[in-house]
């Protein structure tokens, strides 16, 4: 029987895993009493934000919240706890496991040099509210998130693809996105610029940079067989005998005294 390949995650997987192997977990610490992170948590709690979970992972505070609270939480963190900068914002695809995306906001407090990460989970067809009003950098970061994962962001000022072309189909960082292109992708540029009828004329894309087409009369391909630029390849002699160049000839000149070579050349 052929092997069943899962369609919900087509990414590369480990070829072999020991069946007794259990992945360890990076230690998650409790928020220490009296620390700066505790004041952050207290501030959030006093603003009636429901915290699903919070802990310290590798020195950074991690807060899990509900997706509806994202703007409120970030606003509180920015205004009350001085997380003035949002350094990064993106998503992680957990559609195959839970049917959800994980959206994270990576925040930085410049005065205390402390970082916090706000994490929320949304369903596949669920949109999330834009945090552009809180952190202006979300203008670009949320566009990228939309481009890469197809997560709709409500009330974003200009939600448009940013890295991929506007007419691209699919969202590349999803786990279901194929790792190799299909026929449509292979002929994308040709179809787009010239039309499908030009596929035969132009031919498939060649990615070998060292390839030399001897009969190409436009791209320096006929080294040693030079012809005028753009000459009709049909008229060009297709045998292997080099064509006499009509532009220049390199002389091996003997410049020593008494030689007539130079005068001959003049």
């Amino acid at each position: 029987m052929r092997r069943y390949t899962p369609k919900d995650n087509v990414q590369k997987k480990a070829k072999y895993t020991d069946r007794f192997w259990v992945a360890p977990q990076v230690p998650r610490e409790e928020v220490e009493e009296g620390s700066f992170f505790e004041t952050v948590i207290d501030e959030l709690k006093s603003n009636n934000i429901e915290l699903l979970d919070f802990y310290v992972e590798l020195g950074q505070l991690v807060i899990h919240i509900k997706p509806e609270d994202n703007v409120k939480t970030l606003k509180t963190l920015k205004e009350k706890s001085c997380f003035k900068m949002c350094s990064e914002l993106s998503a992680i695809d957990y559609l195959a496991q839970d049917g959800e995306f994980e959206v994270f906001y990576q925040l930085l407090n410049l005065d205390k040099a402390q970082r916090a990460r706000v994490i929320t989970r949304i369903k596949e067809d669920q949109a999330i509210e834009s945090v552009e009003k809180v952190y202006r950098m979300a203008n670009f970061a949320e566009r990228e998130m939309y481009d890469m994962f197809g997560i709709y962001v409500n009330n974003h000022s200009y939600l448009k693809r940013i890295l991929m072309p506007d007419d691209w189909v699919g969202h590349p960082l999803r786990k279901t996105y194929p790792l190799q292109g299909d026929e449509h992708a292979q002929w994308y540029e040709v179809d787009k610029i010239f039309g499908k009828e030009y596929r035969d004329i132009i031919g498939p894309e060649n990615r070998d940079p060292a390839r030399v087409d001897r009969y190409d009369t436009q791209r320096f391909a006929r080294v040693g067989h030079e012809v005028p630029f753009g000459a009709d390849p049909e008229l060009v002699d297709k045998t292997d005998t080099p064509i006499e160049s009509r532009y220049s000839k390199t002389f091996l000149t003997d410049y020593t005294k008494g030689s007539k070579e130079l005068e001959n050349r003049r």
């Binding site: 480990a14 192997w21 992945a23 360890p24 977990q25 990076v26 992972e57 590798l58 950074q60 991690v62 350094s87 990064e88 990576q106 970082r115 990460r117």
Partner: peptide
Amino acid sequence: RPPKGTVYAP
């Protein structure tokens, strides 16, 4: 195979 977890290293 690193342990399960998240890291952000600036």
